[in-house]
Simulated assay, not measured.
Amino acid sequence: MKEQWLQCEGTWFVGVDALPSTPNGAVGGVPLQGPALERIGAREDLHPAQLSITYPGYPRPRAGENEAAFRYRRNRDAAHMDGLLADGMPKRRFLRERHDWILGLPLTETSVGASPLVVWEGSHHILQGAMIDALGNLPEALWPETDITDVYQTARNTVFKTCRRIPLFTRPGEAVLLNPFLLHGVAPWEAGTTASLDGRMVAYLRPESRESGAVWIRQK
């Protein structure tokens, strides 16, 4: 798995579906439970959890990443909205995954500066509005092939100018539940930060929405 998923010169493990969790979120017979589950409700269609692990020195350039992309990773926390996938040369963005929510479960103890998750307060309103403007009047079947790069980048720049950037320091036993339209990223690893050899490890669940596109894109 490290050969496949260890990126950024060994400072980031981006293990998509790497944790052997069950469709209801259990691991090793231990169920997914707690206030977050009470909020989202029980599910039986969850994918194996993604493992995001950062190590001291993050970020380093990712293989195939140009200088501009690396600067964005370093200076803007690689901020993104999930589900907008890059395709083609040059890369363009398309909405090809629709998530109900993003649930982050921290698995290791670290000090504050260990590449925390970063969110932009209120950004989901701006990005959702941009998605509605770009796709809301199109048949859902056309969404995956509709280029939304320019609309997305304009909305993202508005977020950077108007929304407060908030690093979220978390510990095992806590959970983070994100709106699917929220702009979020990973902060650089700060000098002097302490962590075990396991690094800063978070398990993420982000199930595909069972709602129609018309309902999903206008959700409250």
Results as ranks from 00 to 15, higher is better:
Pro23Thr: 07
Ala36Tyr: 09
Asn24Leu: 00
His47Phe: 13
Gln33Thr: 15
Ala18Met: 12
Val27Ala: 06
Asp17Phe: 04
Ser21His: 02
Ala26Cys: 07
Trp12Leu: 14
Thr54Cys: 12
Pro56Glu: 02
Asp45Tyr: 12
Trp12Asn: 10
Ala42Ser: 14
Val27Asp: 00
Val16Trp: 11
Glu38Arg: 14
Gly57Gln: 05
Ser52Gly: 10
Phe13Asn: 04
Gly10Pro: 07
Val30Met: 07
Gly57Ile: 05
Ala49Cys: 10
Thr11Val: 05
Ala49Arg: 11
Pro56Phe: 09
Ala18Leu: 11
Val16Ile: 13
Gly25Arg: 05
Pro59Ser: 01
Ile53Thr: 15
Tyr55Ala: 05
Gly41Gln: 07
Glu44Leu: 01
Pro59Gln: 02
Gly25Cys: 06
Ala36Met: 12
Ala42Tyr: 07
Pro59Thr: 04
Val16Cys: 02
Pro56Cys: 01
Pro59Leu: 13
Val16Ala: 11
Gly34Val: 01
Ile40Gln: 05
Gly41Tyr: 05
Leu51Tyr: 00
Leu37Pro: 03
Ser52Val: 02
Asn24Lys: 03
Pro48Arg: 08
Ala42Phe: 07
Ile40Trp: 11
Pro35Glu: 08
Asn24Cys: 10
His47Pro: 00
Asp45Ile: 12
Arg60Ser: 01
Thr54Ser: 15
Ala18Ile: 08
Pro35Cys: 00
Thr22Glu: 10
Ala36Lys: 13
Ile40Tyr: 04
Gly29Ala: 11
Ala18Trp: 14
Ala49Thr: 01
Gly10Asp: 03
Ile53Lys: 01
His47Lys: 11
Val27Tyr: 15
Ile40Asp: 02
Val30Lys: 08
Pro48Ala: 11
